[in-house]
Design a protein around this nucleic acid. Structure first.
Lengths: 157, 157
DNA sequence: AGCATATGAATGAATG
DNA sequence: CATTCATTCATATGCT
């Protein structure tokens, strides 16, 4: 289900497929048709930058006419397009005023670590999600997981 | 995310990881190890969705065994994971059902079909113009994309 | 062939 | 809880 595995490398599924006709789609990642890109670009140029969920659905539906597409593709497309536009512009701005500050961004977040996250979860309504523990999650010999589960148990008891 | 549609696995080798060396973690942001992700995922699948502050602390403590981690990382992880599960649900739901083939000669009756599909967005104030867009009337002229653009304009302003 | 760029996909970190 | 931003990974494509 969720999570793509996490570890090392990517195996490319060689799908050879002969695809029929025009928009050849390999398996793997979506590759948009020229028409799809055209429409998306037009929408972007028209001023649409962050489409809502409904808009994404509609756009995706319309674009499916040209070929296989999912909502998430539209979502990612706009995210990336916007981000990269900003990215480019950022580089240009930095370049034009040749600031020698080749800053390292690492130091910025240091102070924030001290701020605890207590603000988010209120004291009341503390646990309600934990009760549904199935207790079958440790089918294997994952001792660490078991340990955590046991540590959590005391909270609900 | 969920299955990416391919059979392969992906893992990203990043800095951090439980690897050797005290390798300097150049990343400013937390990079979970595979074990950490595994435990977190397991907890999530076990039903934990919104851990309390105490739970976050405990989980973080346990996970610190595998590598550098802070409470806020755990907090964010659950937030993101939950949000994206729901988001994904939403995106996949509507889009998948209609594969439209351009070769299909859709007759008059298809209009109702399209309406019924897209009606999921909202009862009132349904942008009928967009939904009644007949996907079969034109092949590759610019009219469709122009229409889409024009229909979206009202939303972006 | 190898490198460079473009871009789809993913996710950590926030913010409202 | 949703939405957004930033950064990174992965791959497809193009160029030399």
């Amino acid at each position: 289900m969720d999570d793509i595995g996490m570890s090392g490398f990517c195996v490319k599924p060689r799908c050879g497929g002969g695809n029929g006709g025009g928009a050849g789609n390999k398996c793997g990642r979506w590759n948009p048709t020229v028409e799809q890109v055209k429409v998306l670009t037009d929408l972007f140029r028209a001023g649409l930058r962050t489409p809502s969920t409904d808009q994404i659905q509609k756009i995706s539906s319309q674009l499916s006419f040209y070929g296989k597409i999912e909502s998430k593709n539209v979502f990612y497309w706009f995210q990336n397009h916007k981000a990269r536009e900003r990215q480019k512009r950022r580089r240009v701005s930095v370049t034009e005023q040749h600031e020698i500050h080749r800053e390292d961004r690492v130091s910025v977040s240091s102070a924030k670590h001290l701020v605890s996250i207590n603000q988010v979860s209120g004291p009341e309504r503390a646990m309600e999600t934990l009760q549904l523990f199935p207790l079958n999650s440790f089918s294997e010999s994952d001792s660490e997981k078991l340990r955590i589960v046991l540590l959590m148990i005391d909270r609900i008891s």
